[in-house]
C-alpha cells in the first residue's frame, strides 16, 4: 500500500502538488488522470523519491520514501519517467539487465541471467535483445524500458505516461501487458495516463487530479461519469457503455 499524507510541492509561490492525501491500494492497475499541469507527474516523482516533497510524507508498505535507504526502496518500487534520454549506448539486453542491479550490486548470477531472459521474453524482445537502443522504434524502446522495471522484480511499478509516443496498436499492447504484469506477478502498477478510455478499459482504480489536488478517486466504473470527467477536464464528456466498457466521447 502506498500512503500519501498531506504532500505539498511548491515551485516559488505556486503549489504544483497541494496537500495531497491519497492511498493507493495493493494490487491491480491504478491510473492517475488529469489535465496538463495538474501535478500528476510531480506526484509520481515524489512517491518514487526522484523529487523531495516540501511537506508531508509518502510511505510504501510503511517505509518512508524520504528516509528509507534508496537501495532498499529500489527492491520494492520501480519508476519509469516519460523521457528516457539515455546518455550511454546500451543494448536492450544490457538495459534490461540493469534491472537486476538493486539485487546484485552489479554482479550477475546465473539466476539473474535467467530473469533477464524471462523479462525479454515477456515483452517479446528476445529477437531485439542485442540491438542498441538507438536502433529501435519508439514503441520497442518503451517496451525495453518497461522490461527493465519488470526485471527489477519490485512489488510496485510506477510509470509516467507509458503510452507517450505510441500509436494505437502499441498503446493497446502496452496496456494489456501492464494489466497482465499486474495479474501474473501480483504487482501494483500505477500509471499516469492521458487517454481516459485507456484508463477506463485497463485500470481498477482511477485517481483524478486538478490544480495540484486529488479531486476524486474510486473504482473505474464509478469514476467514468460525465460529471466527474467534466469536472476534471473542464470539458463536456459523454460517457457511453460500449461492449461492457465505459467510453468517454469528447472529440466533437
Amino acid at each position: 500500500m502506498i500512503e500519501i499524507r498531506n504532500v505539498t510541492k511548491r515551485y516559488g509561490e505556486h503549489a504544483v502538488v497541494d496537500r495531497v492525501s491519497l492511498t493507493i491500494p495493493r494490487g491491480g492497475v491504478t491510473s492517475i488522470i488529469g489535465a496538463n499541469g495538474a501535478g500528476k507527474s510531480t506526484l509520481l516523482s515524489i512517491i518514487s523519491r526522484l523529487l523531495p516533497a516540501d511537506e508531508g510524507t509518502v510511505t510504501v508498505d510503511g517505509m518512508d520514501v524520504a528516509t528509507t535507504p534508496t537501495e532498499r526502496l529500489a527492491r520494492r518500487l520501480a519508476i519509469l519517467r516519460q523521457d528516457n534520454h539515455m546518455p550511454v549506448r546500451l543494448t536492450v539486453r544490457e538495459l534490461v539487465a540493469f534491472g537486476r542491479f538493486p539485487h546484485t550490486g552489479g554482479r550477475l548470477t546465473a539466476e539473474d541471467h535467467r530473469l533477464v531472459d524471462e523479462a525479454l521474453r515477456y515483452f517479446e524482445l528476445t529477437d531485439l535483445a542485442d540491438r542498441h537502443l538507438d536502433q529501435l522504434s519508439g514503441g520497442q524502446r518503451q517496451r525495453a524500458f518497461v522490461a527493465m522495471t519488470l526485471c527489477q522484480d519490485t512489488d510496485y511499478v510506477l510509470l509516467d505516461e507509458p503510452l507517450n509516443n505510441l500509436d494505437m496498436r502499441h498503446s493497446v499492447q502496452m496496456m494489456r501487458r501492464l494489466r497482465r504484469m499486474a495479474e501474473d506477478y501480483g504487482k501494483t502498477v500505477v500509471i499516469v495516463v492521458h487517454d481516459i478510455n485507456f484508463a477506463s478499459c485497463h485500470s481498477d482504480v482511477i485517481v483524478a487530479m486538478k490544480h495540484g489536488r486529488v479531486i476524486a478517486q474510486g473504482p473505474t466504473a464509478e469514476m467514468m461519469t460525465p460529471e466527474i470527467l467534466g469536472e476534471v477536464y473542464d470539458l463536456d464528456i459523454d460517457v457511453h457503455e460500449l461492449s461492457g466498457r465505459r467510453i468517454g466521447v469528447y472529440f466533437a
Binding site: 532498499r72 529500489a74 527492491r75
Partner: peptide, 21 residues
Amino acid sequence: LRHRLDVVALGRDHAINLGVD
C-alpha cells in the same frame, strides 16, 4: 565504485530508481 558508476552513467533518475545514491 565501478558498478555504481555504471548506473550513474544512465543519468540521475535511472540511478535513483536502481537504488544508487
